[in-house]
Simulated assay, not measured.
Amino acid sequence: MEIRELQWFAALAESQHVTAAAERLNISQPTLSRAIARLERRVGVPLFDRHQNRLRLNKYGEVFRAHALRAIGEIDGAEQRIASLVDPDRGTVALGFLHSYGTWLVPGLLAGYRAIAPATRFELRGAAADTVVDDVRRGRLDLGLTSPRPAGDDLDWTPLQQEPLCLLVPTGHRLARRRAVEAAELADEDFLALQPVYGLRQVADRLCAGAGYAPRVIMECTELSTLRELVAAGLGVAVVPIKGSPSGTGDRAVAVPLKDPQAQRTIGLINPLGGPRAAAVVRFYDYVRSTAHASDV
């Protein structure tokens, strides 16, 4: 059984039309039909139900497709790992990060890195902190940029820099003209926040807990841009990163610095315990670590 036949089968299973699949694969219809017939003879059952010119994947075909896709993925992964060992500049790095880092931190890192390794490919995934951590643990991501430091001892953590936080308030708010505020002054405020799985929410909750209260969160969302717009609409206040605040809200919201020493989050790099193995990942990993505490990252 050849890998290309599995790839042809996967393409036909997706389109369920011999003509369309053959055109997409740039092969003749008879060649594709013979390849599928060979696969069916090998497994001993038909993989498609035939209906005139169209095919429909049957229950045997569904099982075979699941395994074929895994086999194709394994071969592709092996080729990429071997290629990265031969030439670390040409490997692939799967990098996860908090959504908010996609607006400044990640572009800056990648722009700097591509200047020295332009052939490296990146698979970028923005997500909540818990998702980034879980994907690194499960091997879906090579590296992750997250905050706060994950619990447990199964990941390596490299702190990179401190990111200051501020209080975002509507322009008409009683604190809008203040030069700075303390978290203790906010106990009676209505808070708007990201959901608890997000690192920023966890840091903000700890900030309030350190001031002796639990924040009265009246609305939760999943994006910083939405959070800022909710504040601008006058619905409450929010703890947000200083970078980008009040992004997109014009003169409807004001960012007020927080005096508390805890009003910051540590940006860190995570990877599986023992460090990355693929050469391309190791090189990028070393580059990111070298930027720790750099003001322009």
Rank of each mutant, 00 (worst) to 15 (best):
M1W: 10
M1T: 14
R4A: 12
E5R: 15
L6C: 08
Q7W: 04
W8V: 01
F9L: 11
A10I: 11
Q16L: 08
V18L: 15
T19D: 07
A20G: 06
A21H: 04
R24M: 10
N26C: 09
L32Y: 06
I36C: 07
R38N: 11
R38G: 06
R42T: 10
G44A: 10
V45H: 10
P46S: 13
D49M: 05
D49Y: 04
H51P: 03
H51Q: 15
L55W: 15
L55G: 04
K59G: 09
F64G: 02
A68M: 09
A68C: 11
I72G: 07
G73K: 14
A83T: 11
S84L: 06
L85F: 08
V86W: 07
D87M: 06
G91I: 03
G91M: 04
T92A: 11
T92Y: 05
V93G: 00
A94M: 11
L95G: 02
G96H: 00
G96N: 03
G96Q: 02
F97C: 05
S100R: 13
G102C: 04
L105K: 01
L105H: 01
L105E: 00
G108W: 01
G108L: 03
L109Y: 00
L109T: 00
G112V: 01
Y113K: 02
A115I: 03
I116A: 11
A117Q: 06
P118Q: 05
T120F: 02
R125H: 12
G126N: 07
A129E: 15
T131R: 10
T131P: 02
V136N: 00
R137L: 07
R137D: 03
P148E: 08
A151L: 12
G152N: 12
D153R: 11
D154P: 10
D154T: 03
L155P: 00
D156T: 13
W157N: 11
T158E: 13
Q162A: 15
P164V: 07
C166P: 05
P170S: 09
P170T: 13
H173K: 05
R174I: 12
L175E: 05
L175W: 14
R178P: 04
R178F: 09
R178Y: 11
R179V: 12
A180K: 14
A180M: 13
E182V: 09
A184K: 14
A184E: 14
E185A: 15
L186T: 01
F191I: 08
A193D: 14
L194A: 04
Q195N: 08
V197H: 11
G199E: 02
L200D: 02
R201E: 15
L207E: 00
G210A: 12
G210N: 12
A211C: 09
Y213I: 04
P215F: 01
V217H: 03
V217E: 04
L224R: 07
R228G: 06
L230E: 06
V231C: 09
V239R: 00
V239C: 05
V239Y: 05
I242E: 14
K243Y: 12
S245D: 12
G248R: 12
G248N: 13
T249I: 04
G250L: 07
D251H: 09
V256F: 02
V256P: 01
V256H: 04
L258T: 05
L258A: 02
L258G: 01
K259Q: 11
P261N: 07
N271D: 12
N271G: 13
R277A: 15
A279Q: 12
V282P: 03
D286R: 15
D286C: 13
V288I: 15
R289E: 08
R289M: 09
S290I: 05
S290K: 13
A292P: 10
V297E: 02
